[in-house]
Nucleic acid binder design. Structure first.
Lengths: 305, 305
DNA sequence: TAGAATTATCGGTTTTCCCTATATCGGATC
DNA sequence: GATCCGATATAGGGAAAACCGATAATTCTA
């Protein structure tokens, strides 16, 4: 039994005429006759009662034709599904992004994305880097926006942009008096950090030449779970912190208790990349996504495309 | 796309391993790989994201596999249906019978039939001869129990038994006085008859050498629609009539106002046959049915097998 | 770095499918 | 009834496909 046979059977059932059925199936009448006979032999039953003059379907044939119709319908559904996914842009593109990037990047690109690629459906998740990579491995997401280098043998990466860090401190912080803030100033500052696992914490420590967290005495649990919380802490005078550029854009106008200043250091930035499995088949979708992202970044970051 | 391909796809989806899937499908791994690839090309999509080390199904693949499973299930249903109809006795056998036979024959055979052929489902209909033949032509029934010869070029027939006619008259009828009832007696008697289309009416007229109905003045609408009605008429003294043997069996004990007597004439019988389309494929079912019928006839009829 | 595991590719064989031509049968027509 | 028309079935051969074994290529593991 195969799909073609079922088409033949349904065609004969519809037309009660081998010749017309053959025509409808674009095969010769002997071919169709033979295939019907083959199927009847295989099933061990008579589907059609035929004389030299007429064709009539048997009761069991009627039942089987009903199932055959459903099968053919399902097969057509499969072809339709495939057809509408021919366009690699169609079908959900599941993007994960780190939590210190997603809330600030997504608002910039979602509307342009919908304008430029209306057929693309984007599914966004926010996780910490390691979780994102794990989900990439499990095929739960298709690509991850991260700010950490990954092993090139495991994932392909495309660098997107370099995002400078800004210093954020309370209005009445000593930094306010300084004209310039040097590396030394930073090195001597205790930064408020995000909790374990956020790459931003590691990056901030690196910029400020801080010791790894494990080595220093843990500072009274002032590790926030999100960047927003961190800024709240800065706002009420708990200390200062480093903020990635995209996150700064929302602050400046809204929060008068927080001062943000661009750092002078050349290396005070993080590199945001898109990581995906080597075998991911819909690169065109990724390329289209990347293009929209790059086109809608502010000039405060440095595009790498 | 064909059913085998879908089996391959489902197998790979289940095992995430081309080798194991191939084993499960009883083909070599290269064959399975090739067929999957062929299907992917045909659909224009990637069903499985594979590296040299692992296989993962794509989202669209997942969807398609779900449909494929349904298709395979339906196909299996078809095979099961065919399997259970391999036995030609299974599946409803649709028998039509003339109305002057069915109510008296069926009670005799239904129970034995259920005992001997429990798997056979019988669908019985009662119609007049011409209607039965029409329904045979339209494949609405599979065989007809009739008492009229039919054109052998249109239908096959198997004669089953000869059923003698009995004379039925009211208790106080002149016949009651006679020792023997001759052909002449009959010829001079006006019989009560069934209405137009019942073969029994024609046969009774023939036995009694009556003129065709059209030629004689119509007798006050005393044409009953059923044998039971006819007997009622006899019972209340309206006249006499001919009754086929099987119908007599119920009367003798129940109705004291009706006298039934066996006719002497050699030719006072009707031949009951089974008619069916030449092309009817389940002759075994018919044979089995016939055997049960013949085995359960009373000795008052003459079996012809 | 060798070996094991896994998928892809290649060349050749078998099976299936399909076509044309023709046989066969039943019905209609003359 | 002889013949033609309309159907389905059969036969023979050719093209397409499905399949297999051997092997390549790649990647993980020890």
């Amino acid at each position: 039994m195969n799909l073609r046979d079922l088409e033949y059977v349904v065609a004969v059932a519809d037309s009660s005429h081998f010749g017309h059925a053959a025509e409808r199936c674009y095969v010769s009448q002997p071919t169709l006759s033979g295939q019907i006979k083959k199927l009847e032999d295989e099933l061990g039953i008579t589907l059609f009662e035929r004389t030299k003059r007429s064709v009539a379907i048997t009761p069991i044939g009627e039942t089987i034709v009903a199932h055959a119709r459903e099968i053919l319908e399902q097969a057509e559904t499969i072809r339709q599904l495939a057809q509408s996914h021919q366009d690699p842009l169609i079908g959900p593109l599941r993007i994960g992004a780190i939590m210190t990037l997603s809330p600030y990047l997504m608002p910039l690109i979602l509307k342009p994305l919908r304008d430029r690629l209306p057929q693309m459906r984007l599914v966004i998740s926010e996780e910490m880097t390691e979780t994102l990579l794990e989900r990439l491995r499990k095929h739960e997401i298709d690509a991850a926006l991260i700010a950490t280098p990954v092993d090139a043998s495991e994932f392909s990466t495309i660098p997107l942009f370099d995002e400078p860090f800004w210093l954020a401190y309370p209005r009445h912080h000593p930094f306010q008096e300084k004209k310039t803030i040097t590396q030394k100033d930073l090195d001597n500052t205790e930064l408020l950090l995000l909790s374990e696992g956020h790459c931003l914490a590691d990056q901030a420590m690196e910029v400020c030449h801080m010791k790894a967290r494990a080595e220093q005495g843990d500072m009274a649990d002032l590790h926030a779970a999100s960047l927003e919380t961190l800024l709240q802490l800065v706002g009420v005078g708990f200390g200062c912190t480093l903020i990635p550029d995209l996150a700064v854009r929302g602050i400046r106008m809204s929060d008068k208790d927080i001062v943000t200043r661009r750092l002078q250091q050349e290396d005070a930035y993080r590199r945001v990349s898109l990581a995906f499995r080597h075998s991911f088949p819909r690169l065109q979708a990724l390329d289209a996504f990347i293009e929209v992202v790059l086109d809608n970044l502010p000039d405060t970051v440095f595009r790498l495309s």
